[in-house]
């Protein structure tokens, strides 16, 4: 098909973010790239159903998510073993933040239920509005909000970060206190 180059460019411009989302869903770079490819094949095959002027990223994300979900049901076990896999796949680029902190964060993220992780990423990293995220996930805006909230709370829990003002002792101290046992 001859496609309007402007539309094609919109598609291409979405790819990096689409990949990041796919990796966060599937927890595996290779599968993520397959997923992105499959998404693009579908999208381009049905490009007529995209209305120019509407939100291209949201459209592509929706397709990718649906693909992932239908595949995911078949392979649930593999993905739910997120603790290992998701953390592991992404371990390879540690420079930016402290290595330990970063890996810790990834491991914690991997422990979230997938619907919460997905919501948090769409809103907190991909930069979608709650409304767009709700459309992508096929649920109510309120549902997205509450998933994002729960995801944040749980992450804070897992990472043992809290309001320092409220809790006084720093993380190391609290770890000692928590693990210190009785004697």
């Amino acid at each position: 098909m001859k496609l309007d180059p402007a539309i094609r460019d919109q598609v291409l411009a979405t790819v990096p973010s689409l990949r990041a989302f796919a990796i966060s869903l599937s927890g595996n770079v290779d599968r993520a790239d397959d997923l992105v490819q499959e998404t693009l094949l579908r999208a381009l095959a049905h490009i007529d159903s995209f209305q120019p002027g509407t939100n291209m990223p949201a459209w592509l994300f929706t397709i990718l998510r649906n693909l992932f979900r239908s595949e995911y049901r078949k392979r649930r076990r593999e993905v739910e073993d997120a603790d290992g896999r998701y953390a592991e796949t992404l371990k390879s680029h540690p420079e930016q933040t402290g290595r330990v902190e970063f890996n810790e964060f990834r491991a914690a993220l991997a422990k979230l239920p997938s619907d919460q992780r997905e919501a948090l990423i769409l809103v907190g990293a991909s930069g979608f509005s709650y409304e767009d995220a709700a459309a992508i996930c096929g649920c109510a805006v309120g549902t997205i909000k509450s998933r994002v909230n729960r995801a944040r709370t749980r992450l804070a829990d897992l990472l043992a970060i809290d309001n320092v003002d409220d809790f006084g002792p720093d993380r190391a101290t609290r770890a000692v206190l928590a693990g210190g046992g009785r004697s």
Binding site: P16, A20, Q37, L40, L109, L120, A125, S126
Partner: peptide
């Protein structure tokens, strides 16, 4: 949390469009 989340995400975003995907499109 937001900062770490975006840091992780942007690592991938900053890789741009992989060549095979660009070619495909």
């Amino acid at each position: 949390i937001g900062q770490q989340l975006r840091g992780m995400y942007d690592e991938v975003v900053n890789q741009g469009v992989p060549k095979h995907i660009d070619d495909l499109v």
